[in-house]
Simulated scan of single mutants.
Amino acid sequence: MRQLLRITATFALALVFSAGMAFGQSNTSTVDQTGEDHSADVIQNGGNNTVDLEQADTDLSDGVTNNMEANVRQKFSGNEAYIDQKGEAGLIGPGKSTADADVDQVGNNNFLDLEQGPFFGKHSADIDQLGNNNTVRLRSSNGGGEANVYFEGNQNKLVRSNSSGQILSGEKVVQKNGSGRTQFIDVTVDGNANKIGADQQNGNGTDELTIDIVGSENFVPTYQGAKSGDIDITVADGYDNFLKAIQTGNNSTATIDLNGMSDGNQAVINQSSAGNTATITVDGMSNTATVQQQ
């Protein structure tokens, strides 16, 4: 069942925290919330500002559902946001935690590090970056997850980190899930020379990935390691893009569409296991299409 993008909950005992507005440059806002049912809102206008926001449930045995919501708005360039939402450990039924993060960054050279999980009942992320040379580092685990990412600009990156939190530049965002719930990633790109990818590892569940691109010279590697998956990549009027879909599960579908005058692009689909479908549609000149199924 598809998880909703936004999760809004109001409770009599909810803790609501507003960090307020920070104007000017080189400001730092730190929010640390522990307990249950948190909401945090941080707005910064100016350059070189930093947000450090952590929401956590420290009582892992009370069985109470913990709902977390983080909203961050940063305007101008050189800003950084670090958001960590931590849930309850392995509880089932009404004791599951949920998390929702909504981040808007407008300007150049901005950075977002968002981690959700582990052990959420469900979690979602809605991320918008408008500008050039921005970076999103996203990691989520467990629970049914959904991430919506929008880039408008050039040389932006959606990358992943390793277990030590180090950025692996140009590699893929990781979405892991051992619960069997469906995971979703939707990425929209309007610009050139961006590095966009996704690594979905759902075990016995299903993954869905959609990437829509208007632009050129974008690098788009994707991977799904779920029981079954669906990858849909579309490019409109772009050239010299590299698009790759790898799927290892059964009954998976991969579709790459090069529409309009899309020239000089490379489209690759690799599928292993059984019952898979691969489709590459090309409209343009000097494009290369490769499909491997085994």
Rank of each mutant, 00 (worst) to 15 (best):
K75Y: 15
G90I: 02
K96V: 12
G197L: 05
D57Y: 02
N148M: 11
V189T: 03
N48F: 15
I233W: 04
A101S: 11
G205D: 03
I127G: 03
E36K: 09
G46T: 04
S97N: 06
V220R: 04
G87P: 06
T65L: 05
K157A: 15
N162L: 10
A12S: 13
V106D: 05
G238Q: 03
D207C: 03
P118W: 10
T255A: 09
Y223M: 01
Y82A: 03
T248Q: 04
T34E: 11
L130Y: 14
G121D: 05
T290E: 11
A226P: 05
P118C: 06
L60W: 12
F119Y: 07
I167G: 11
N108H: 10
F76N: 14
F219C: 08
R6H: 15
L114M: 01
G260Y: 05
A101T: 03
T279M: 10
H38N: 07
N134V: 06
I233Y: 01
T253W: 02
Y150T: 15
N250V: 08
V64M: 08
M261G: 14
D199Y: 06
F184G: 01
K227S: 14
L138Q: 02
D32P: 07
G144P: 04
Q155S: 15
D59F: 10
N202Y: 02
Q55N: 05
M68Y: 10
R160N: 07
D57F: 03
V235T: 07
K75A: 15
F151I: 04
N45V: 13
E80D: 14
A289D: 00
R139P: 00
T188G: 14
L130H: 12
L15T: 15
F151T: 06
Y239S: 15
Q116M: 04
A254G: 13
R2W: 02
G165D: 06
L53G: 06
H38W: 04
E88L: 02
Q175R: 13
N148Q: 13
G238C: 09
D207H: 09
F219N: 07
G238H: 02
K96S: 00
N109S: 12
Q105Y: 06
A14S: 13
Q116N: 01
V159Q: 11
D230W: 11
D126S: 08
A101E: 02
V173P: 06
I7S: 07
V51M: 01
